[in-house]
């Protein structure tokens, strides 16, 4: 296997992983864009999405696509409830209060899962939804069917999101609220509904990410959301928090870098790399790769 082939192979693996990060990062970035909150519980939505998908397939005998849609709907609802009950009362409170609530929610969901009898603390094997076949697309460069599935679903969802944000009335409302909440309100936009919708959209994408992640890794566990959640946040910052294309680019980039580090035989440092990237980007360009400079109004 030549170096070129190896690089290409790792690139493919990286993009597949990165597309999952990107799906989660989109939720972070949209919520941040609209209410300036890092939703720490977003990684838990990702985890719950994977579990809902698991139960849909094993208990209700759904096939893959219906299970995916079911989990996305379930998590949208969860996102809306979370926003209404926990974040809405804190919209005018100091930012630190909402951040702490988000941390509380994250811990709550994780331990609730442990506490629930039919989930528990031990990992569960995610059912095989697709026969793993390997396609040799070039000499010594392989593409597996689960990666094709991940990439295909992720891409379809990103295109759908692009359509919603730029071509629908709700998308326009989202963009308006993220610019200026009060002005949007005066223009007759229902700010509360728009914020709830943003949470629903972000949570649905996280749920899809959770299922795709589970398909590639084969198992799910109550704390599976922590690391991918953290990394998705890094992706969002890397791409420029608040920017939708930025989240996608950041996720892909992080996936590729992580795979390169693993391939170089430093898999132990895989998790540390995301963190190092975060520090670096904050030092060099805090607005991220595609982020806009925003100024505080004085």
């Amino acid at each position: 296997m030549t170096l070129g082939q190896q690089i290409l192979q790792q690139l493919i693996n990286g993009i597949a992983l990165g597309s999952v990060y990107a799906l989660i990062a989109l939720g972070y970035t949209m919520v941040y864009g609209i209410i300036r909150l890092i939703n720490f519980a977003h990684g838990e939505v990702f985890m719950i999405g994977a579990f809902v998908g698991y139960f849909a397939i094993t208990l209700f005998k759904f096939s893959f696509i219906p299970a995916l849609i079911f989990a996305m709907l379930f998590c949208s609802l969860l996102g809306i409830i979370m926003e209404r009950l926990a974040y809405k009362p804190l919209r005018e409170a100091p930012r630190i209060a909402a951040l702490m609530t988000a941390v509380g929610l994250s811990i709550f969901f994780q331990n609730l899962m442990v506490y629930l009898k039919w989930v528990g603390a031990s990992p569960k094997a995610f059912p095989r939804v697709i026969e793993i076949t390997r396609y040799e697309i070039m000499e010594n460069v392989y593409l597996t069917s689960d990666k094709i599935l991940t990439l295909g679903v992720a891409l379809a969802l990103m295109l759908a999101l692009q359509y919603v944000v730029h071509k629908t009335k709700m998308g326009r409302a989202m963009r308006a609220v993220s610019q200026d909440k009060d002005a949007a309100q005066l223009m007759g936009i229902n700010v509360d509904t728009t914020i709830s919708f943003t949470f629903a959209l972000g949570s649905a994408l996280a749920a899809a990410g959770g299922i795709l992640y589970a398909v590639s890794y084969g198992k799910i566990i109550y704390n599976m959301g922590t690391m991918p959640g953290l990394k998705a946040f890094v992706s969002a910052v890397l791409g420029g928090i608040g920017s939708i294309p930025g989240a996608v680019a950041g996720g892909m980039l992080l996936g590729i870098v992580e795979n390169a580090v693993s391939a170089a035989g430093m898999s132990m440092l895989r998790d540390a790399v995301a963190f190092a990237i975060l520090i670096l980007i904050l030092l060099i360009k805090p607005t991220g790769l595609l982020g806009k400079n925003t100024r505080e109004k004085v």
Binding site: R36, L230, D271, A272, I279
Partner: peptide, 25 residues
């Protein structure tokens, strides 16, 4: 040093990541 120059929320996530990294190390 790198995070405290910036808005508060970054410190939260950096310290969270830092805690995890220490554990991994």
């Amino acid at each position: 040093l790198p995070t405290l120059r910036l808005r508060g929320d970054y410190l939260a996530i950096t310290t969270l990541g830092f805690g995890e990294i220490i554990r991994v190390l």
